[in-house]
Amino acid sequence: MQPVSLFWRIFALNAVVLGTATALLLWAPVTVSVPVVLTEAVVLVAGLAVMLVANAALLRLGLAPLDRLTKLMTTVDLLRPGQRLPASGGGEVAEVMRTFNAMLERLEQERATSSAQALLAQEAERRRIAQELHDEVGQTMTAILLGLKRAADDAPAPLRQELHEVQEITRESLDEIRRLVRRLRPGVLDDLGLVSALTSLTEDFATHTGLQVTRRFDTELPALAPETELVVYRVAQESLTNVARHANGRRVTLALRHTDDSVVLTVTDDGSGIKAPREGAGIRGMRERALLIGGSLEITPAPRTGTRVQLTAPVSRKSSDHA
Rank of each mutant, 00 (worst) to 15 (best):
V93Q: 05
P86D: 15
V16N: 01
E227T: 07
L265Q: 04
L24E: 09
I129P: 07
K275D: 14
R250T: 15
R106M: 13
A290H: 03
T140P: 02
L184Y: 15
G138T: 11
S319R: 10
T300C: 03
G249E: 07
K275H: 07
A57V: 15
G90C: 08
E125R: 13
V315Y: 01
T259N: 01
P301S: 09
V264S: 00
L120M: 09
L146E: 15
V232N: 00
S200V: 12
V315E: 07
P303S: 06
R183E: 15
P158L: 02
I10G: 01
R216E: 13
V50P: 06
P65V: 11
L145A: 15
Q161M: 05
G47I: 02
P277M: 07
L25K: 02
G295C: 07
L174M: 09
G210K: 02
T209L: 02
L224F: 05
R257A: 04
M141N: 10
A116W: 08
D260W: 00
T214L: 09
G280W: 05
L38W: 09
D175Y: 06
T219F: 05
G147F: 14
E105T: 12
L159F: 04
S272W: 04
I274C: 05
V53T: 09
R250V: 09
A116S: 09
E172G: 06
L58G: 15
Q161T: 08
H164D: 13
L6K: 00
G273P: 04
Q117I: 10
T113W: 11
K149S: 11
P226V: 03
S262W: 01
H164M: 12
H258W: 02
Q2R: 09
R251T: 14
A143Y: 13
L256G: 02
S114E: 15
K318H: 11
Q139G: 07
R98G: 10
D218K: 06
V309K: 01
A94N: 08
V50N: 06
V166N: 00
V42S: 01
E168A: 11
T75A: 14
Q117P: 02
L256P: 01
A313S: 05
D260Q: 03
R287P: 06
L61V: 12
V232H: 00
L221R: 00
E279D: 10
G91R: 09
R80D: 15
L265F: 07
R182D: 15
L180H: 13
L72A: 12
V166G: 00
L240S: 00
I10S: 06
E298T: 12
P222N: 01
V235L: 03
L291N: 12
L211N: 01
R160C: 07
S319T: 11
Q109N: 12
M97L: 15
W27C: 01
T142R: 15
L104V: 14
R216V: 11
L59I: 14
I299S: 05
N248H: 13
L120G: 03
P158R: 01
T99L: 11
N14I: 04
A302C: 12
R171K: 04
P303R: 04
T20W: 04
L148H: 08
